[in-house]
Design a protein around this nucleic acid. Sequence first.
DNA 1: TCTCATTGATTACATATGTAGTCGTTAAGA
DNA 2: TCTTAACGACTACATATGTAATCAATGAGA
Lengths: 122, 122
Amino acid sequence: MTLPNISEAEMHVMDVLWREHPLAAADIAQRLDAQDWSQRTVKTLLSRLVEKGAVGTKPQGRRFLYSPAVERGTVTGRATRHLADRLFGGRAAPLVAHLAEGKGLSDDDIAELEALIAELKS
Amino acid sequence: MTLPNISEAEMHVMDVLWREHPLAAADIAQRLDAQDWSQRTVKTLLSRLVEKGAVGTKPQGRRFLYSPAVERGTVTGRATRHLADRLFGGRAAPLVAHLAEGKGLSDDDIAELEALIAELKS
DNA sequence: TCTCATTGATTACATATGTAGTCGTTAAGA
DNA sequence: TCTTAACGACTACATATGTAATCAATGAGA
């Protein structure tokens, strides 16, 4: 109902599924090589995501194929708005300012932002 | 050095202290009226923040006066970069796009962003 | 057909977090 | 001086999260 909360570890699993699905648990674990988690851990995260309604399953033989049940944009949008509200009263500028300061935005980033602003003004 | 992690509830306490300090626990609780927490809860949060090194104390009589030990910008900057990295590979534009879509940015917000972009370009 | 590796289900356990309660001490008022 | 209210310290307990291990069933290979 209320968009499920997806933890940081769980988000890595979602990222795999958003890129490619449906996938079996083993395939997901394999694609999460960088995380250096055991298969067990990945399965636990998958179970929790299914429980939360963020991931759906289809039986295939004796195992499941997993797919996202929520869209990436929905999740990232909510997280972004939540952070902006919590830290800056919903204002975007200070948020961007932090990004700019920390590691510097690339020229591409700036150009993209500019285009976005132009669009917002119309 | 390891910037302490500050939870959402703790952040409300920090916000009070960033606005005004030093303050005694009772004053902080009073200023957190909106949260509808018991004094106990506020004290627990304060203890945890002191433990984490995010808040400092000065004894005053038999009680403490609390003050922030980390700057707001440091904390918000870290949280912002963390979110941007986690969700968008550090890119600012999709983040702003979400804010724009969700509730619409005010004209002021947009103007502010524009000014910021102009500055970044120079 | 028999064995075993793999799968989902269940259980485990430490730390973080939200939200308090209890206790011993002490300053301040009666 | 005696009492009490308030303070910090310590304790409590449920849920979320990170990170697995165990268990029972079963399909695939010997």
